[in-house]
Design a protein around this nucleic acid. Structure first.
Lengths: 215, 215
DNA sequence: TAGATTGTTAATCGATTAACAATC
DNA sequence: TAGATTGTTAATCGATTAACAATC
């Protein structure tokens, strides 16, 4: 199995989204240049990205949409549903629990955990909320391998430790904290400041440019 | 002014966070290798990144923490507060409104907008919520240049058009929709599927590897 | 057939990493 | 002074982009 580069992985979801829309519209085939136009990419980029999923197309015709959807889902591991736990039912946690789009990514949050006793036993967005102490018990019982970390930064490492102890193999970290975990654990950061820094830089560069032009 | 590469921009926030912690702990100086260790980077990466902010350090001693913080904030445009609007007070919108960390990034959400009349006139996290129709009026009056888009995908383009019409120059897009806006408008995507695709791929690669080893 | 699109190889570009002299 | 760290130049690596023959 060839490996897929990170930039390609980050572009595949928008192709997939576009393909699903096209399929709903009754389209049967699509070309790489078409996908590129619909996702704001260069044609050569889309062509290369699709190639990395190992699907083959027909010159002049393009790709069969159902097969291409399957190929991308397969490449991303979104073809079978992954059960996940969420820890931290604050504002962000609730936003994640309520987000209906995860199903399209093969992700299902089957349970949530929080330290606040007032929440225990209740549901949010049809997901039951358990005490944090139950995490270590329930993870192996429900065979969950993915943990979503949405707790305050101060609790992040402590909860990550619990997740590792429980047998979680992947952590989606919505906390700005750098986690120290065993090497075998996969950690994916989802840090808004990372994205905001790019935006701020571009905006302040633009403002600096405008001032220069005015002067 | 030299430009700062995107990978560097994406690493600067975690350096900044670390520096602020060190400052609170009473530290006065820090070296690039120290910062690297605290943020999980290679020493050479941190050294190069810091160099791109144009700050100079002292061999053997490192950098003065207050000066370095100012340099990074300045490079990112986080040194003066940017006022922003948020449109879409759903679960995600509320999570963003309640997030206290934005202040550290020089970002302040001064008003929110929503189509739902039940919300109009009320506050969430001390931020007033206005009808969507007020957006075009209020943007120039409050001199806001940054819009945060947290509406359902179906409304994304329509709201983006309104933002552009109102005079917004930068859009932080939490929607999976590809926006069509004038070239001068800066759009930053914050798409969870992008991050999730990397994580899913790594997890399914790991599982594939384990199966291979077992076989 | 004609020609748009694919698959693939080569060229370019830019970021990462290495190397090392300067210096506090 | 000795040596850790800086600033900077060079080498490496990998992604993007270009080029083009194959093909439906």
């Amino acid at each position: 199995m060839q490996t897929i580069s990170s930039p390609t992985l980050r572009r595949l979801p928008s192709y997939l989204r576009t393909l699903r829309v096209l399929q709903e519209q009754g389209e049967t085939h699509v070309s790489a240049p078409q996908i590129a136009a619909l996702t704001g990419q260069e044609a050569i980029v889309a062509r290369k990205d699709l190639a990395s999923t190992a699907i083959v197309g027909k010159p002049r015709v393009g790709f069969e949409i159902p097969a291409l959807i399957k190929a991308i889902e397969g490449a991303l591991g979104w073809d079978n549903v992954t059960d996940a736990f969420l820890v931290g039912v604050g504002n962000l946690g609730r936003a994640l629990l309520a987000y209906e789009g995860f199903a399209a990514y093969g992700l299902k949050i089957v349970a949530a955990f929080d330290a606040n006793p007032d929440l225990h036993g209740s549901d949010f967005a049809d997901t039951p909320i358990f005490p944090l102490e139950k995490l270590v018990d329930l993870t192996p019982r429900l065979r969950v391998h993915l943990g979503i970390l949405a707790v305050p930064p101060t609790a992040a490492q402590m909860v990550a430790d619990k997740m590792v102890k429980a047998g979680i193999t992947g952590i989606w970290n919505f906390t700005p904290t750098l986690l120290s975990v065993p090497e075998s654990i996969i950690v994916q950061r989802e840090d808004m400041s990372v994205s905001l820094s790019e935006l701020s830089y571009k905006i302040s560069s633009q403002i600096a440019l405008e001032k220069k032009e005015t002067a």
